[in-house]
C-alpha cells in the first residue's frame, strides 16, 4: 500500500501543482527570454548573459515537483537522463559542473538573490517581492504556454 501511495505521489502531475516562475539575480540585465534561449541556458549550451556575466544554474533536488515539471517542460528528459546529460557535459569539457542543487524554493530564491548571473525555476507562490521574474516568449507565469512551446 505504501508503495502504491508513493507511486501515486511521484506519478502524474497533480492538478494543484504550483505554477512555475523563472527567476534571475537582480543584476541580470535581461527581462525576457525566448523559450529556445531558456532551454539553451538550462542545457548549459549558453553559459554567459549578454552583459558577460557567467550564468549559474540553480535547480531543485530530485522528487521536488518543480524539478519534475522543469525536466518535462524544458529538458524533456527523465531524472536519469538529466543526470547522465550533465556527467556527459562535464566529461566533454563543455561545462565545469552541473547545476547547483537546492532543497527548497526558499533556498533557490536566496541563492539567486546573491549569486551573480544566477537563474532558477521555482514555484511562483514562493517568489518573494523584489525578485526578478523573467517573461518567457512574452508570457508571465500562470499564462498558458509560459514554459512550453
Amino acid at each position: 500500500m505504501l508503495l502504491l501511495l508513493a507511486a501515486a505521489a511521484l506519478g502524474t502531475p497533480r492538478a494543484d501543482e504550483p505554477a512555475l516562475a523563472v527567476v534571475v539575480n537582480p543584476g541580470v540585465e535581461v527581462d525576457e527570454l525566448s523559450f529556445a534561449e531558456l532551454r539553451k541556458i538550462m542545457l548549459g549550451d549558453r553559459q554567459f548573459w549578454t552583459s558577460g556575466q557567467r550564468i549559474t544554474l540553480i535547480v531543485r533536488a530530485p522528487v521536488a515537483d518543480e524539478r519534475t515539471a522543469m525536466l518535462e517542460s524544458i529538458y524533456r528528459m527523465s531524472e536519469a537522463q538529466f543526470r547522465q546529460y550533465w556527467i556527459a557535459k562535464v566529461f566533454r569539457a563543455e561545462a565545469t559542473s552541473g547545476p547547483r542543487v537546492v532543497v527548497s524554493n526558499d533556498e533557490a530564491v536566496d541563492l539567486v538573490g546573491v549569486i551573480e548571473g544566477g537563474i532558477a525555476v521555482v514555484a511562483l507562490s514562493d517568489v518573494p517581492e523584489g525578485i526578478k521574474v523573467l517573461r518567457i516568449d512574452g508570457k508571465m507565469p500562470r499564462e498558458p504556454g509560459y514554459l512550453g512551446e
Binding site: R54, A93, T96
Partner: peptide
C-alpha cells in the same frame, strides 16, 4: 579518471 578545476570565472582546467 577525469579532473575539473575552476581556476577563475573564465579560466578552467580539464
Amino acid at each position: 579518471l577525469h579532473f575539473v578545476s575552476v581556476l577563475s570565472k573564465r579560466i578552467n582546467f580539464f
